[in-house]
């Protein structure tokens, strides 16, 4: 049983799948990174992905163009971000509560909207056609390399974009004036506002960018991964992304590695549930990413705690006599 298991794991197509599964989580994790850098906890990512996935697909269907679909999803993501911002920064709703509200819109609101726009209930299976799905590309030269080519070539354009965005986001945060301002606002809003940086504006920008990235993740889900929109499609990826952000220490590259870890866990689930003797563990395997997240958070919290230990209360047994 386990021999077979390991054989399956160490195959090129398995690594290919990991990358494919990681991409939407990565988009959402980057969305979490950018908003968290500005000090905004975006718990609404799950709902944002649901809604943008729906609108991305609808825009693509209406125009029969996947490009318009992706851009539309980003636009809707931005609007959702701005809406959360309006309620939280302007009307002072707790940001966590505005996030929960967006998630509510994501679960039921999407079904309502789908019906309102198309008359369909539950999913868009009837509307799918190949030209509105995000195309895959073969990378010249790399696709000729054995094994590596199989792993790296032939992904959807958005998959590559997700990984490229890791570095774009890094450069944005650390090398541009806007990134500098966003980090300053997240770390010390008073300092930022004392030099005339508008804290609220930076937060709006960050959460709008967060929405745009979530939009890319949503579009990836409905226009590539699931080939159409359905209700249970996002399945907690928005929440996992929050954990990936936290585990990745809030940095783009760190978030990428923790997203890959979640990708691995989910890929294992799909692989393993096909194996004889392992099939009846499919739910438990599906659980792994969430358990890994909790464990990851625990380790992260412990490392922070250890760093801070010297200056906090020491355990009584260390007490000096």
């Amino acid at each position: 049983m386990f021999g077979q298991f390991f054989q399956t794991i160490f195959q090129a197509d398995f690594l290919f799948i990991i990358i494919r599964i990681t991409a939407p989580i990565l988009f959402a994790a980057l969305a979490a990174v950018i908003s968290e850098k500005a000090g905004v906890a975006n718990i609404g990512l799950e709902g944002m992905m649901m809604i943008t996935a729906l609108f991305g697909f609808l825009f693509a269907y209406w125009t029969q163009s996947w490009v318009v679909g992706v851009l539309g999803a980003m636009l809707v993501g931005i609007l959702l971000g701005l809406m959360m911002g309006f309620f939280s920064f302007k009307l002072k709703t707790d940001i966590i509560l505005s996030g929960i509200a967006v998630n509510m819109l994501g679960t039921g609101g999407t079904i309502f909207l789908l019906y309102m726009f198309t008359g369909l209930r539950g999913n868009t299976g009837a509307l799918v056609s190949p030209n509105i799905l995000i195309p895959t590309i073969d990378i010249p030269l790399i696709n000729k390399i054995p094994v590596l080519g199989e792993i790296l070539s032939g992904h959807a354009i958005l998959t590559y974009l997700a990984f490229i965005f890791v570095f774009i986001l890094r450069i944005f945060l650390y090398r541009t004036p806007l990134g500098l301002k966003i980090r300053a606002v997240g770390e010390n809003p008073n300092a930022a506002s004392s030099v005339g940086v508008s804290v609220t504006r930076m937060k709006y920008i960050a959460i709008a960018m967060s929405g745009a990235l979530a939009g890319l993740g949503g579009a990836f889900m409905s226009m590539y991964y699931s080939q159409g929109w359905n209700q249970g499609m996002v399945a907690g990826r928005g929440f996992i992304a929050l954990a990936a952000q936290a585990m990745g220490r809030g940095e783009p590259v760190g978030a990428m590695f923790s997203s890959l870890l979640f990708g691995l866990a989910q890929a294992m689930k799909t692989k393993v549930s096909g194996l004889r003797g392992m099939a009846s563990y499919n739910y438990l395997i599906e659980m792994i990413p969430y358990v890994v997240t909790i464990i990851g958070l625990v380790f992260y919290a412990m490392s922070i705690k250890r760093k801070a230990r010297r200056h906090q209360l020491k355990p009584i047994k260390e007490k000096l006599s």
């Binding site: 929440f239 929050l242 438990l284 659980m287 997240t293 919290a301």
Partner: peptide, 26 residues
Amino acid sequence: LKVKLGASEMVTSLMLNFVLLYIVLH
């Protein structure tokens, strides 16, 4: 986890929901 380690109860509880779901389903 929150009290002893300072791990965000919001994220752990969200993850816990899924863990519980899959345990029940299993």
